[in-house]
Simulated scan of single mutants.
Amino acid sequence: MKSPKRFLIFYLSIGSGHLSAANAIKKAIREYGSEYRVFCEDLFTPAIRDSMLPEFLSLSSTLFFPGVYDTAWQSGSMMPGYELLQVMPVLRNRVMEILLHRNPDMVICTHSLPCSIMASLQSDHPDLPPVAAVATDFMVHPYWPIKKVKGFVVACDEARERLIERGGSGDRIRVLGIPIDPAAENLSIRERSDDIKRDTRFSINVLILAGGKRLAPYVATWPKTKNLMDMAMQLPAGRVHWNVVCGIPSAFSRLLTEFMKGREDVTLYEYVTDFMELLSRQDFVITKPGGLILAEAMALGIPAILVSQGSGQEAANSNIILSHRCGVLAESEKEVLAYLQDVLDYPYIAADAKRAALTFGKPSAARQAAAWFLQGMP
């Protein structure tokens, strides 16, 4: 195969991780040369993307039906319904229209649904370009296709082993990490050389992620965030600085702004455009177990305090992070404060967690994935 010049990256606008990974790959490929053309396309039409459907799908996994979702994610029990989605004319036609419009040499998918549709279409259209799959969580579920996928990028060895168990070929799987903004590489170098400027007025700096481009995935964390900020007054004054990212403006961000008036130990942010820079100045991040935020944190050596085990892919993310000792699970506000008090009393706890995060993190994931794609794989 000749070296590809035109790349089409399919994502799905559920949450923000799939698009963020697509943009990271796009940026990394373009850094290799101006001759490369990269197009990111949402499988959802603009009408679907701007409707409440993506928010509902996000909420269904975290609030409405977490148990059902977890079982389906682990076992593949919803495969018949998933296969029906793959053959829906509206989705297949959209994929074909975008392929004709963009005329790519390679298709990269950061979500399993467009990847499955591409694999299905290749059976009927063998002249379609090769497909690469990029997992944006630390484990892969049964809905990722194996056949007709030329290469997989996964986050860790455990995910690679899972794909091989399902029949994937080991020489087509690369453990490169979840693609994040290539800027993470320079920030990681600064972190490893201890060249990051932190707020020295406080003993530790903690970032709380309570929102992003989309709010639905974070709704379940809002009561905990407010309660934690109230209970944080129990910690010794001047020891912890809380940086709360609320995402796009919402009733919650307005409530928290009013609630935090006069608090010198709290800084509130709405949507942050230089999030990686802000994250790099922290000692811990408090978050739900989303794949992208955990990949960003690990790349910068920022241990995670997980406020829930999660379900489906989030439960799998939690298990991986905890097994690599890159974070802790603290499902109540009291547990969060107790852990941070231990960190204040015994600094080696933070040092050990930071070392584990730096060891596990993969700040060059996007660049290495781009290099592999430019070679044409595998």
Rank of each mutant, 00 (worst) to 15 (best):
M1N: 05
F7K: 02
L8H: 02
F10G: 01
A21Q: 03
A21R: 05
I29N: 06
I29K: 07
I29W: 07
I29V: 15
Y32S: 10
S34R: 01
R37L: 06
D42Y: 04
T45Y: 09
P46F: 10
A47Y: 13
S51I: 14
S51H: 13
M52D: 04
M52T: 08
E55S: 10
L59A: 11
S61H: 05
S61F: 03
T62Y: 05
T62R: 08
F65N: 13
G67T: 05
D70T: 11
T71L: 15
A72N: 05
W73G: 08
W73E: 12
S75F: 05
S77V: 13
Y82T: 13
Y82H: 13
L85C: 13
R92E: 07
V95T: 09
N103W: 01
M106I: 10
I108E: 00
L113R: 01
H125W: 04
H125K: 07
P126V: 08
P142Q: 05
P142S: 06
I146P: 01
I146L: 05
V149M: 15
G151T: 14
D157Y: 06
R160I: 01
R162Y: 05
I164C: 09
I164R: 08
E165R: 10
G170S: 07
G170I: 01
G170R: 03
G177E: 00
G177P: 01
I180P: 13
D181H: 14
A183D: 00
A184Y: 04
R190Q: 15
R190T: 11
K197S: 06
T200P: 01
I204H: 00
N205P: 02
N205T: 08
I208P: 04
L209P: 02
P217K: 00
A232K: 10
A232P: 03
M233A: 15
A237H: 10
A237P: 05
G238Y: 08
V240G: 09
H241K: 13
V245N: 05
G247T: 07
F252V: 14
K261H: 11
G262N: 10
R263L: 04
R263G: 04
D265T: 09
T267R: 14
Y269F: 15
Y269K: 07
V272Y: 11
V272T: 09
T273I: 06
F275S: 06
E277Y: 11
S280N: 01
S280C: 04
F284P: 10
K288W: 06
P289Y: 09
G290T: 14
M298V: 13
M298L: 15
M298K: 13
A299F: 01
L300T: 02
A304H: 02
I305H: 03
I305E: 03
L306I: 00
L306W: 01
Q313L: 07
A315C: 14
A315N: 15
I321R: 00
R325S: 14
L329Q: 12
E333H: 03
K334V: 10
E335P: 07
E335N: 09
V336G: 01
V343F: 00
L344N: 05
P347L: 02
I349L: 13
A356R: 12
S364Y: 03
S364K: 09
A366K: 08
Q368L: 15
A369T: 15
A369E: 10
A371M: 09
W372S: 13
F373G: 02
M377W: 12
